[in-house]
Write a protein that binds this DNA or RNA. Structure first.
Lengths: 198, 198, 198, 198
DNA sequence: CATGAATGAGATTTCATTCAT
DNA sequence: GATGAATGAAATCTCATTCAT
């Protein structure tokens, strides 16, 4: 059973994720990673072909899980607002689940990352595209059915994306200890969008 | 005419700001800065004691202008929502005014920045504290006066900060071409907070 | 007068040439080069972009000089054998002139040399092609005029190339102290090729 | 059946020979060898104590065979030129027989080869010494008997060695497709050395 | 015998910074 | 003020070799 006994590869991934999230890709050295993972530097290169590949691996894995979450969102909901509420819940849940990874994923691609396949850039673009499509569809339908106020769809979509991405990033920054944020965020958006509340 | 030729210092600052914003502090080399500023590397060290000081200088200057904007906000307004609307406007305006600087300022401190005076960290903390105070005051007053819904103040403040900081950062990321965002953001928040709209 | 005072670049080239010739490209480290040139390692990278480029630079320069010598050969000669004698003289002279460079040039391209422009490979090919053309022309004419024995031209050309390249390489190997080799080589070839000697 | 499975050792030797010949000793890694031999790296160390020993083993074996060929040359021949012709034939035949090994053997010792017993260096020296003795004896006798022209023996010997070693190396370089080279080389040397041809 | 995993030593390269001029 | 040249320190990565199993 080769590979069963050793979790060093996982140790490396975990250490790298923490450090990349805290210091950025360019700000993190392979020596730091090796120390945090309690291994020697070359072990990194035994398990990964390069620092860049270690990073893109983490990013890929993270986006895979994120997109899996998105795929799990129901296409049909009783109200259109439920879609938006689900999206808020999803983003706050995934931050709980993997705060550092998701912080990395929601950040810009490191300038010096060698990423010939564009793993980083393309995943970010896909993320934005999917959010945009999902939100645009929901908003347009909600407006058409009279559930939502007749807002500027494009700008509101952008605003909501900023909010969602902001939620992903703030946790990673550990700047604030957000409590009750999920309910608050949902209520905030509901009052803003949904018409007949009485 | 002393000072006429010294636009080189400004060239350096401008080049550094662009590069730091695009590539991060750790991802930007002094050689890149010197090339973009069309000078040689030692000139940087004539005008600045170190790369770190060049960065903190930009950050300081940026926060100084940002705080000056905040200081200019009216303490007294006809409605409490006006305060929030002003804040939104201020943030979108300053992004227009100095997109790269403000992106830098709204980002986390570089891990390897030598910043013994804590210029970077302290300014960010101050920014968050001031936003928190300003928003908390506004929300509490608005709720007390019956202008606002009785929301969870702390969580709503955090949410608004996330939104405001997100607005600062998104422009820097150039991910989206936001049009009509200012009015949309204001309306979004108004509907969410202000009670009697008819 | 920038660059006039410093001969460090030349020192590097000289040290590198010696070491590459003695130990091969893969067998020579930049540290060895820097020590032999009495400089520090990064100086190499100030003057050259990489170890590979240092090598290909030497090779280019060497072949340029070699081809210049070839260009200087007379197109018209009293006898065809003079052409071959000139070629022998040229090769032994250039070995005297730059023994290490010419040894490098006459050797195979290092396996791990990063040489995207194919400087190394292409120069060697050109060298062989030019020798082949020159010798083939000479032999065919000499045979046609009855100056030479009617030899197998292609095979004789190959043989002469092996001899010429061998002359270039042996000096570099310092295996033997060749004296009177020039006259001997010429006589050897003359007797072998030229018909009526009496 | 011991020895049936142990072709792995032969696989290693074969792979190493090919790679050493193509890339040099310093340019070849043990990983490359293990991959080409379709085994894992430690297997190399089961069969050989070190990469150096693998190389010197190949060299030893090659020279052993080469010297056995030399030993097989007749001491007595009808003419002295036959000796030289035999030598040419021998070298071209052994290149056919083991092109990569012989290329390695005819090349210089790798600079970084750990070879405390001097296997590499000493074999090369022995090779040159034996060639020199054999050729010197033949030439001197041939001149004394009036079979050969009265050439400069030392220089002619060197020239012939250069030619013979060149024949060994050129094949390895695969630069040219030599046809009819054996007869041509013999004729070339005969005309050059042997007096009365009619 | 064989292998997956690991490592010490060292190779190439980068970069902030300095210095002589 | 300005520059070409240089450097110490460190970063990424490689590789021959070993070891536990």
């Amino acid at each position: 059973m080769p590979g069963l006994r050793t979790n060093k590869k996982q140790d490396i991934i975990q250490a790298a994720t923490l450090l990349f999230a805290a210091q950025g890709f360019d700000g993190t050295t392979t020596l730091q990673i090796s120390k945090k993972a309690r291994i020697t530097e070359p072990v990194i290169y035994y398990h990964f072909t390069a620092k860049d590949q270690l990073f893109t691996g983490i990013i890929s894995e993270t986006f895979a899980r994120y997109f899996a979450h998105l795929d799990g969102l129901p296409q049909k909901t009783r109200t259109e607002f439920e879609k938006i509420a689900n999206l808020i819940a999803l983003h706050l849940d995934i931050v709980e689940e993997m705060p550092d990874q998701i912080y990395l994923a929601a950040s810009a691609c490191p300038a010096r990352l060698k990423d010939p396949d564009g793993v980083c850039r393309r995943n970010i673009e896909t993320m934005h595209r999917r959010l945009k499509n999902y939100l645009t569809g929901g908003l347009e339908a909600g407006i058409a059915w009279g559930e939502f106020y007749p807002v500027n769809v494009a700008a509101t979509v952008d605003l909501l994306i900023i909010l969602l991405v902001g939620l992903l990033r703030q946790k990673g920054l550990k700047v604030m200890q957000i409590k009750g944020i999920k309910q608050t965020a949902m209520d905030f958006c509901r009052r803003s969008l949904v018409k007949n509340r009485y």
